[in-house]
Nucleic acid binder design. Structure first.
Lengths: 353, 353
DNA sequence: AGGGTTTAATAAAACGTTTTATTTAACAGA
DNA sequence: TCTGTTAAATAAAACGTTTTATTAAACCCT
C-alpha cells in the first residue's frame, strides 16, 4: 500500500513475497543453476559467459529479489565468515571499548560475530569455546579470559599471559605501565603509595602486580603490606573499588597516593576516600588504569594509565582474520605488545606538604 | 603428549583430530546415517530402536568426538537459532545494559546473536536488517533505532515510537517519567528549570519532550525558551552534555535545576556547571535519565529517572522468542510499557534560598 | 575435410544433516 | 499356512548452494 518514497533503485522488497531460490531463478531465466550461480558470484569461470547473458541474470535476480541462502553456501564452501568473541561482561567500560574496535574491523571485512559473556563462571568459560566452534566460528577472540578448553580454530587473546599453542596474545607493556605510574608519583614527591590489586580472576592482575613491585624497587619505593588490598567481588561496577578503598582506610596507615587496578575501581575508591574526609587530589592522589570513556568526566577527572583498548580490539580482529586466511601451517605472531600512556588529569598532584 | 588432568569424563578432544561426520560415525557402527541421526536427536521416531543400540551409538559418538555440523542442520531444518541485535553504539552505558539483559535470556534458550552498531549512520541503519536476515537470523531486536528497512522476521524495538506492522515496541512510560522528575523538582521548590533535550536521532527525544511539557503545564511550571538546549553531537561520551551545559550558561538566564536527557549528558553538564563556579546540588540540582551503572558512583552521585534497561532487554528477548515459535498468523503484543522510577541521590536537593 | 581451440552452457557431485516412506524380519492370531 | 502387526533399520529425498568435469556448437587453421 505505502508508496516507495525513493522510487528509483529500491525494489518493493515485499515481505510477503515468497523467497526465491537459485533453482527458481534459473528456471525463470531458462538457464541452469550452475550458470546463474557463476554469474552471481562473478566467478572467474564466468568469463566465457557473454555480457548480455550476465546482464539478463542480474536483472532477473533483482526483479525476483533473489537472496542467496547463507546456510547453504556456508555448508558448501565450508566458510561461515563468523567469529566468536568471549568477554567477561558486556556492561563495562573495558570490554565495551575493545568490542567496538573488534566490531569495526570485522564488519568492514564482511564478518559477523557472536558475543558471549561468561561473568567469570568457570563452567561457562570452558564451555563457550566448544559451543562457538560448533556454531562454525572460524576464529575466536578472548578478551580478558583465561581458558583451557580445546580450541581448534585460530584464536587471539587480549590481556592473557599464558603462551598457548595456536593463540596470539595481545598484551600491554605492563612494565612500562608500572614505571609510568610510579615514576610520575615519585616525581610528585609521593613516598607512601597504596595499591589496589585486581581480582584474582582478572588475567592482568599478577603480571601487573609484578611489574609494579619491580618498578617500585628501582625507584627505591617500599611497598607497605598494609597498603595493598585486592578487589574481590566480581560486580562489574565501582562497588568492589569502594570496598577496597574502605579496607585501605581501616588499616589506619597513612598514604598520599593510590594506584588502582582499573578506572572503575579507582572511582569507587575515590568515593570511599571522600566519605572518610580525604579529598582528592589534595590529600590523596589517585591513578586509575585503562582510561575508559568516563574517566575524563569524573569529578575530579581521573589521572590514569591509558591502554589503547579500541586499538587492541582492532588489532585482535586484524590478526585473527589474517590468520584465518593464511595457509594452514603458516607462521603467525605469538605476541603483540602495545604501549601504555600516562594521562594526567585532576585526580593527582603534588604530595601534600 | 600432555596428559589429561581430569582423566575421567573428558575425552582428549585432540584438536588435530580430523572432524568426523555422521556418515563416518555410521560406517564405524555398521549402521545407517538415518539410525544414528534419530538416536542422536532423541527423535520420537527412535522409540523402536532398542536401548542397547542407542547406547552403542552414543558411546561411539563420544569416542569419535562426533560434533554435528551446524550449517548442515540449519540448512535442513530451516532454523538457525540466531537473532540479530542492532544498537547505536556498544560503548555506552545504555546499550550495554540492554544487551546484557538480551544476552542472558537468549543464551539460556540456546540462541546466539549477532550485534551490529550503526553509530547513527543512516545507510547502515537501512542496510543492516537486510544483511542480518541474509545471515539467517530468525528475529531482530532494535535498540533505540528507528529504521524503515523491510523486515520479514519477527522484530522487537526498544524505545521506538512508531507503530510498524510486525514489530513489538517496548517503551518506557514517558509521561510518568516526566511527572516523577518535575513533581520532585517542584516539591523541592524549584521553579526555574533548565532542560537538555536529546539528540534529534534518538528515538525517545520527541516523546520525552512532549511528556515533559505536559507535566510542566500540569504543575504550572513555565518552560523558558532560553533554558532549553539540545544535544547535537553524536559522540557516545559526556562531551555533548558538557557542550549543552555551556550553552545553557551562556544564555545568562538563571536556573536552579536541570533535567537532562540522559545520565551521560547530565555528567557532562555537571562539569560545565562546576567550571562556571556553580556547585551541584547547592546552586543547581541536576537530574539525569536512565540510571546507568556509573550514575551511583558519580561525584556527586546522580539523581536520575531509572529505566529498567536490563529488564527491557530480557523482555525483548522473551517476547521475540515467543513470537518466533508462535504459529505464523498468531496474535502478538504490539506494545509493552515499562515503568520508570525516581532515584534520588546526591546531585539534587532543595532550591537554594 | 579434419583436427584443434574457444565459447557458452550444463550435468552432477558435493557439503552434512533431517525426515519420510519403505523394507525386511520376526512374531502373533486365526 | 496365511494375514496382519510390530520391531528394527534403511533408502532416498530434501535443504540451497558451489564447483568440477563434461558437452555441444561454433570457429579457425591448414
Amino acid at each position: 500500500m505505502a508508496k516507495s518514497k525513493s522510487g528509483q533503485s529500491e525494489p518493493p522488497a515485499d515481505p510477503s513475497a515468497k523467497k526465491v531460490n537459485l533453482r527458481e531463478l534459473a528456471e525463470y531465466l531458462g538457464l541452469s543453476v550452475a550458470t546463474v550461480s557463476l554469474v552471481m558470484n562473478r566467478s572467474p569461470a564466468a568469463k566465457s559467459i557473454p555480457q548480455q547473458t550476465q546482464q539478463r541474470v542480474r536483472v532477473a535476480a533483482r526483479e525476483l529479489n533473489y537472496r542467496p541462502n547463507a546456510m547453504a553456501r556456508m555448508l558448501r564452501q565450508q566458510r561461515t565468515f563468523t567469529i566468536g568473541v568471549m568477554v567477561p561482561e558486556i556492561s563495562e567500560g573495558y570490554a565495551a571499548l575493545v568490542l567496538s574496535g573488534i566490531e569495526d574491523h570485522l564488519l568492514q571485512e564482511g564478518y559477523f560475530y557472536f558475543v558471549v559473556s561468561h561473568r567469570h563462571k568457570a563452567d561457562l568459560i570452558e564451555e563457550f569455546p566448544g559451543l562457538l566452534q560448533q556454531r562454525g566460528v572460524e576464529g575466536l577472540i578472548l578478551v580478558d579470559t583465561e581458558c583451557n578448553a580445546a580450541i581448534s580454530v585460530p584464536a587471539v587473546a587480549i590481556s592473557s599471559h599464558r603462551q598457548v599453542e595456536g593463540v596470539t596474545n595481545i598484551t600491554l607493556n605492563h612494565t612500562r605501565a608500572a614505571e609510568l605510574a610510579l615514576e610520575y608519583l615519585a616525581k610528585q614527591g609521593h613516598r607512601k603509595v597504596a595499591f589496589i590489586k585486581g581480582q584474582a580472576f582478572s588475567s592482568d592482575t599478577e603480571v601487573r602486580w609484578k611489574a609494579v613491585r619491580a618498578a617500585a624497587q628501582v625507584l627505591g619505593l617500599s611497598i607497605e603490606e598494609k597498603l595493598v588490598v585486592q578487589l574481590d567481588s566480581e560486580l562489574p561496577t565501582s562497588q568492589p573499588g569502594y570496598e577496597a578503598g574502605r579496607r585501605l582506610l581501616e588499616s589506619k596507615k597513612p598514604f598520599t597516593a593510590l594506584f588502582s587496578f582499573n578506572d572503575i575501581s579507582a572511582i569507587g575508591a575515590i568515593r570511599a576516600l571522600r566519605e572518610a574526609g580525604r579529598s582528592v587530589p589534595e590529600d590523596v592522589s589517585v591513578i586509575g588504569f585503562d582510561d575508559i570513556q568516563s574517566a575524563a568526566f569524573q569529578n575530579p577527572s581521573l589521572t590514569t594509565i591509558r591502554q589503547p583498548l579500541r586499538e587492541m580490539g582492532v588489532s585482535a580482529a586484524e590478526t585473527l582474520l589474517k590468520r584465518i586466511s593464511a595457509r594452514p601451517k603458516e607462521e603467525y605472531p605469538r605476541n603483540i605488545i602495545v604501549e601504555p600512556e600516562l594521562v594526567v588529569r585532576g585526580s593527582s598532584g603534588k604530595v601534600p606538604s
